[in-house]
C-alpha cells in the first residue's frame, strides 16, 4: 500500500482560507434500509459513531457516518481499514438486501479552514446551498454541487468545511476553491450574522 497516492498528493493553498488535500481516506458506500437495526449496527459498528439523522453528519477524526440519501450512508474510516470494514459490514448484513462498496479511491477529500465567515463565503461562491449559520452548521451535510461538478460537504466545526468530490475532478475542485479563496475576494456577507 506504500505506492498508494491521493489525486492531489497533499496539495495545499493559503488564501482567504487554508485549503488542503486530506490525502487518502476510507469512504464506503452503504445502501440499504436505514431504519433497520442490522444496518445501523453494521454502520455504527465500523464507524464508531452514532447513526446520523436526515442530512446530518456524525464524525470524529477520520471516522464518521454521513447521511447521503434516504437509502444511502457514507461510512468514513481510515483508508487502511476500508477493505476490512467493508467485509465486516458485508458479514453483518449477510442475508439482507444491501449494497456496500469500498469507494475510497473513487473520491477525493479536501478541507478548508479559516474564520467562520471566510469558510462559509468561499463555499457560497461555488455551491447553491444556503450557508447562513441558521441554515447550515456543524453536523449538517449536503450532497450538492461545486460549480460544475457533484460534491458533498459538511462542517466538523465552525471553522472547517470538509469536501468530497470525485477523484477525476479533484484538481478542478482544488482550483475552484483556490480561486474562491483568492486574496481580495472576501464578500463580507456573513460578517454580521
Amino acid at each position: 500500500m506504500s505506492d498508494a497516492v491521493s489525486a492531489l498528493d497533499g496539495a495545499t493553498y493559503d488564501g482567504l482560507v487554508r485549503l488542503e488535500d486530506l490525502g487518502l481516506r476510507g469512504m464506503i458506500t452503504l445502501r440499504g434500509d436505514l431504519a433497520s437495526v442490522a444496518l445501523k449496527n453494521a454502520a455504527t459498528g465500523v464507524a464508531g459513531v452514532d447513526m446520523p439523522a436526515q442530512r446530518r453528519a456524525n464524525t470524529v477524526g477520520e471516522r464518521g457516518l454521513l447521511w447521503m440519501s434516504p437509502d444511502e450512508l457514507l461510512v468514513l474510516v481510515p483508508h487502511a481499514e476500508a477493505d476490512q470494514a467493508t467485509r465486516t459490514m458485508q458479514a453483518t448484513l449477510a442475508g439482507t438486501h444491501f449494497l456496500t462498496e469500498n469507494l475510497s479511491d473513487a473520491r477525493a477529500m479536501l478541507r478548508i479552514t479559516g474564520t467562520p465567515t471566510a469558510v462559509r463565503e468561499v463555499m457560497a461562491k461555488l455551491t447553491p446551498v444556503d450557508l447562513s449559520p441558521d441554515a447550515f452548521g456543524p453536523g449538517d451535510v449536503r450532497r450538492t454541487r461545486l460549480a460544475q461538478v457533484a460534491a458533498a460537504f459538511w462542517m466538523p466545526d465552525h471553522n472547517t468545511f470538509c469536501i468530497i468530490c470525485f477523484r477525476s475532478v479533484a484538481s478542478y475542485v482544488f482550483d475552484l476553491l483556490k480561486a474562491a479563496a483568492a486574496p481580495g475576494s472576501a464578500v463580507g456577507y456573513f460578517d454580521q450574522s
Binding site: A147, Q148, S168, V169, Y172, D175, A179
Partner: peptide, 15 residues
C-alpha cells in the same frame, strides 16, 4: 464567473 482558464470546465483526469 470563475469559469475561465484552467477551471473553464472540469477536466477529468485518470490516475
Amino acid at each position: 464567473g470563475e469559469a475561465r482558464g484552467e477551471i473553464f470546465q472540469p477536466l477529468r483526469r485518470s490516475p
